[in-house]
């Protein structure tokens, strides 16, 4: 089963890359953008077949490696 994870920066953390992307978009004529925040996306293909068990495992992965909880939040997307 495939489980996806989205990692985003917490709102008080400076995101200089997001800022530059915003500026570039602005320069390209996309002038109605308020803010851009850059994050990460993971697709994890696991042997686990039970939805809930897989989510628990992925949550552990997020806490231990995929996200740094000082600066990042994670969101696990329900497997389809």
């Amino acid at each position: 089963m495939k489980i996806s994870v989205i990692i985003t920066l917490k709102k008080d953390v400076l995101d200089p890359q997001g800022k530059v992307i915003h500026q570039t978009l602005d320069g390209m004529g996309f002038n109605d953008v308020n803010e851009v925040r850059q994050g990460k996306y993971f697709e994890i293909d696991t042997k686990e077949t039970d939805n809930d068990k897989a989510k628990v495992k992925v949550e552990e992965m997020c806490k231990k490696l995929l996200a740094n909880l000082v600066i990042e939040n994670y969101k696990i997307i329900d497997p389809k």
């Binding site: 890359q17 530059v20 740094n68 000082v70």
Partner: peptide, 16 residues
Amino acid sequence: VETGLVPGVLLRNKYL
């Protein structure tokens, strides 16, 4: 910082 032995994190430099 990733081990948690010292607090905080190191982000990308402010001016990239």
